[in-house]
Simulated assay, not measured.
Amino acid sequence: MDNFTFQNATKILFGKDQEQAVGQETSHYGKKVLLHYGGGSIKKSGLYDRIKNSLAEAKLEVVELGGVKPNPLVSLVREGVDLCKEHNVDVILAVGGGSVIDSAKAIAAGAYYEGDVWDFFTGKTTATQTLPIGVVLTIPAAGSETSSGTVVTNEDGQYKRSFGHDSLRPKFAILNPELTYTLPAYQTACGITDMSAHIFERYFTNTKKVDLTDRLCEATLRTIVSQGKKVLEHPEDYDARAEILWAGTIAHNDSLGVGREGDWGSHDIEHEVSGIYDIAHGAGLAIIFPAWMKYVYEHDVARFAQFANRVWDVEIDTRDLKATAEEGIARVEAFFASIGMPTRLSHVDIDETHFEEMAAKATERGPLGSFVKLHKEDVLAIYKLAK
């Protein structure tokens, strides 16, 4: 196990009706709040009104910015930065899923920066001071409610890039499983895939003797598989929704990655797909991850065989570990297909037109990943495996 420092200061308020406390929680960080959200779903559900009433009861002044889309755009982030500066906003409240939270984080970083907020995503600058962020989560998926990272898309060049800083971890996150009841099945499945991928990125490591976090990763994955099927069959099963909601947070709050080297190559490969084609991130990961696994598994066949056995109950064939590993990968792909996810680029009408461009953009700042270092030709091969 490697040396590590772990600190996650996000306060979690979990359970029924917890959103009623949003005004009180937000008021700890100032009087002027930017209320940031996506489309009309929070208004149709009544959540918007409950949030506004709670903020009013706390005597908070509200500036609003809606319109966040999946794969959030830097153009809206820039608008949010301008609003924060114009109105001297003290705190940002993100109501929605990972896209809304990521957009809020980017705004929080840009609010104290005199240059263009995209500079954070190109590595030109880093955060020194950011606005505090609160969250009311409506989509279990990205884990952004407790993470330090954000991902946005720049329409100019169709670049999807990430940026991280500890100051971007939300100060509090409200997680009510009931707020996820009305999610469409496809969106629920995308979330299940996304949180699974966050665990894969940590599980496939070159660090040895990390059995505790191996076991934690495996347990969380098994929970996602079993409870994910339940929520798709019974969308208003509170207990199953609660398990999935908490699993999404655990998958990306850094606790499963302590003391071990993560990979993150598959995320970077997928970002090029959704950056150009604007598909759901979870759907893109369902396509890319099995292809990545097929490409790299021989680097550590024993780890993939362990994964197959402990997560998918594949009996280990000591005479042929490769067969065990390959069966585990096949079960990942079959699970994604069983919950309605695409598992090939052709399933979402993506052909080879941009493969070269995507591989070049993905690796323009150097090779991807750490489990196996991936250069342009490797990324291109993975896209071809995924077609």
Results as ranks from 00 to 15, higher is better:
E243P: 04
S274F: 02
G340M: 05
T324V: 09
D313I: 04
A251K: 05
R310A: 10
D300Q: 14
S255W: 11
D300G: 14
V332M: 04
T324Y: 08
G248M: 00
E272P: 08
I269H: 13
Q306A: 08
V258G: 04
L285G: 03
V273I: 15
F289G: 01
S338N: 08
F307G: 06
A286C: 06
V311G: 01
S274W: 01
V314R: 05
A242T: 01
R260Y: 00
G265S: 14
D254Y: 05
A247W: 00
F304N: 08
F307R: 10
V314L: 00
G340V: 08
A305I: 12
R310H: 15
Q306Y: 13
D300R: 14
E298R: 15
W264H: 09
A308Q: 15
I339D: 06
Y297E: 15
A308K: 12
A302E: 15
G265C: 08
N253G: 13
I316A: 04
V311H: 01
A325V: 07
G262P: 00
S274L: 12
V273G: 09
V332R: 00
A280H: 13
I250M: 07
V273H: 12
G259H: 10
I276E: 11
A305V: 12
G262R: 05
I329F: 02
S255R: 03
R310S: 05
A323H: 10
V296P: 11
L245A: 09
L256V: 11
E272M: 11
H271R: 07
D263L: 14
G259K: 08
I250C: 07
W264P: 09
H267C: 09
W292D: 01
D268H: 12
E315G: 10
M341P: 07
A240Y: 03
L321F: 03
I329A: 03
E298C: 10
W264S: 06
G248E: 11
H299A: 15
K322W: 06
K322M: 12
G340D: 11
G328S: 02
N253W: 01
T318N: 11
I269S: 12
F335R: 00
L245N: 10
D239P: 10
E270V: 12
V296L: 13
W264R: 06
A286N: 04
E261V: 04
S255G: 04
I276A: 13
V332W: 02
I250S: 00
A242C: 12
L245K: 05
E272W: 01
T324K: 15
A305W: 06
G328F: 04
G265F: 11
